[in-house]
Simulated assay, not measured.
Amino acid sequence: MKIYFVYILKCADNTYYTGITSNLEKRIMEHESGKHIDSYTYKRRPIKLVYFAEFTNVDLAISTEKQIKKWSKAKKEALINNEYNKLPNLAKKKFNN
């Protein structure tokens, strides 16, 4: 059974990058080494892995990555910090503004 990872990196400029891969260790090394010059993280190194989740269903992994990419920085930080109880309120604030 293949495993897929959705991950969040914290970049040197304090922004977050969310990605998906089937080989987390290799992908992190690619980000760290700057293998892909056109990537978001290339000029924002060093990077730090701050969150990852494992999936056996690639479609669910892709949809989760897309969902997290749309989240605010505060909502991503709640996820990273295991503050799951804050996630619903952070979503509501977006719609109340």
Results as ranks from 00 to 15, higher is better:
Y84E: 14
I8F: 02
Q67R: 14
K66F: 02
E25H: 04
T64E: 12
F95P: 00
G19H: 03
K26M: 09
I47E: 05
N97D: 09
Y4S: 12
Y17E: 10
Y42M: 14
V50F: 11
H31R: 11
P46S: 10
K35H: 06
N81W: 03
K94I: 14
I28N: 06
K66A: 09
N96L: 15
D59L: 10
F52G: 06
I80H: 04
Y84W: 13
E30D: 15
K94Y: 00
D59R: 15
E65D: 04
M1G: 14
H36T: 14
P46V: 09
F5S: 02
L60C: 07
E30S: 06
L79G: 03
A91Q: 10
Y42L: 15
T64H: 04
N81G: 04
D38K: 15
I28Y: 02
E83C: 09
E65Y: 02
I80V: 12
K92N: 12
L60H: 09
C11S: 11
K2W: 00
S33C: 09
S63Y: 03
W71V: 13
S39H: 04
E25G: 14
K2Q: 07
K43H: 04
R44M: 07
A61Q: 13
Y40I: 15
N96K: 11
G34I: 08
K73W: 01
S22N: 08
K43C: 09
V50L: 10
A61Y: 00
E54V: 12
N82Q: 12
C11K: 00
K70T: 07
V50I: 12
I47D: 01
M29R: 15
I28D: 01
K76P: 14
H31T: 03
I20E: 12
K75L: 14
L90Q: 08
T64I: 05
H36Y: 15
K43R: 08
I28H: 03
E77R: 06
E77C: 07
A78M: 15
I62M: 12
G34Q: 08
N96V: 12
E77M: 10
A78E: 07
A12R: 14
L49G: 04
T41I: 06
Y17G: 01
N81L: 08
K2C: 01
A53K: 11
K10A: 06
I47P: 09
M1F: 01
K26S: 04
V6P: 01
N81T: 02
V6A: 05
L24G: 01
W71P: 02
E25P: 08
S33T: 13
T41G: 03
T64R: 02
Y4L: 09
K86Y: 11
K76D: 11
K73E: 12
F5H: 08
D59E: 13
N57F: 00
L87K: 12
I28A: 02
D38N: 10
Y42I: 15
Y16T: 09
I28P: 03
I80N: 08
